[in-house]
Nucleic acid binder design. Structure first.
Lengths: 223, 223
DNA sequence: TAATATTTTTAGATTTGTCTAAAATATATT
DNA sequence: AATATATTTTAGACAAATCTAAAAATATTA
């Protein structure tokens, strides 16, 4: 089955939204794709015709098995290329997204598998997101939201759920990246903000909002 | 200046043809691009509007300075990606063309330059074709057509001008690749065919037609 | 050079992906 | 439940890249 770049982008967009909400609606997908609701409806018809979608007019929609499979292929490619860009070409992890958006549409299956092997079959991309394997299986990881971790427990950053440029810029400022070790020194009742100690850095304060977007796991796991 | 994938493909097609013939005509470009003459004319108008082309209706056309520059960017990307596929991902040199056709359209300039650096700034791709540098300069190499080389002189294969699948398959059969060392043992007057000795292989016979597509240089040069 | 053949361009249609504006449907509010 | 609001879909238009068929320009040849 062949998909156009546009189809792949919509499939991926639906995938990301349905991870959060189960059923997806037209307007939220339009927002996600930076396009108009009418364009979304047009594409939904095409994807339904290709039997990738559970979709009833006016009722919301989500990927079916075939659609999910297609989405995982694109996600795998995106995350493998991100890994390549950071690990091999030494890009900053906060500047690779746009390039990976292009690379994810290169079609050769042979290429993806060789790339994965070349990279050492990584299980997580530079943002800590899991990379599906060639069968579409996603590795699981025991991770917690930073704000729920007990005081003085040393943990490793494993993922960041909000990947806006603003967020990534901020983390960079605090020297927080994937694999960074840190611990919570103090929790402030007033606003939920945390004083944290980042390994080899001075202690600093982060807001509750930031802490809720940082995932961590016990030291020494993963990758 | 931004180009669509289609524009880039036409620019590259024109570049390749004008290397041979100077001025290019509509039908030959249509053949090169596997499309129809009418489609070529349509695109020529667009490229002329973007000031990339010297083009008078019914008179033939060629890239101007700006067009040449654009072509060299695409050629550079194509050849760097081919190098990557063969050198890092261990693809056979005769199976990378189609994938590089897709990769060459990834737009990031930063990506290309980092890729080049990662690969060690190679000057020639796996087919022996020169890779333009970031300014569009093409390395020169002192090479000869195999059929013109004197007997018993040991030379190294540096390029193959006909890169059809058929040709590459044949070379593979004879264990001839870029960098292969060989010498001519005998030339047959009758049909111009050559008996050659490929290093570590038995002697074999190749036709004049094949020999005219193999470029060689003195041992120990290049790369 | 006049007739013929070839090459190139134009005219008009098609497909894909997008858009705006309006209509249809669903949801919320009084 | 009737009305207002929000969401979603349809209808129709547009741009890009392609096509076929026909017309125009150029080249060949008798």
């Amino acid at each position: 089955m062949h998909f156009t770049i546009s189809e792949e982008n919509y499939i991926k967009g639906i995938f990301h939204l349905q991870q959060e909400t189960g059923l997806v609606n037209t307007n939220s997908l339009a927002a996600e794709m930076h396009t108009r609701a009418a364009s979304v409806t047009d594409m939904l018809k095409k994807l339904k015709a290709k039997k990738l979608l559970q979709y009833e007019k006016y009722k919301g929609f989500k990927l079916n098995e075939a659609g999910l499979k297609a989405a995982l292929v694109v996600v795998r490619k995106h995350r493998l290329w991100e890994f390549f860009l950071v690990d091999k070409l030494k890009f900053d992890w906060d500047s690779v997204h746009a390039i990976a958006e292009e690379l994810e549409h290169i079609s050769s299956e042979e290429l993806v598998n060789r790339l994965a092997q070349f990279l050492g079959d990584p299980a997580f991309d530079p943002h800590g997101d899991p990379i599906p394997d060639k069968h579409g299986s996603i590795p699981v990881i025991y991770q917690k939201i930073l704000s729920t971790v007990p005081l003085k427990k040393s943990v490793t950053v494993s993922a960041v759920s909000n990947q806006s440029t603003q967020m990534l810029e901020m983390l960079k400022h605090y020297h927080i990246a994937l694999g960074t070790q840190l611990m919570i020194l103090k929790k402030f009742e007033f606003d939920g903000s945390l004083e944290i100690k980042v390994l080899k850095q001075n202690a600093c304060i982060i807001s509750e909002q930031v802490a809720k977007n940082i995932f961590v796991h016990d030291m020494g796991k993963t990758k």
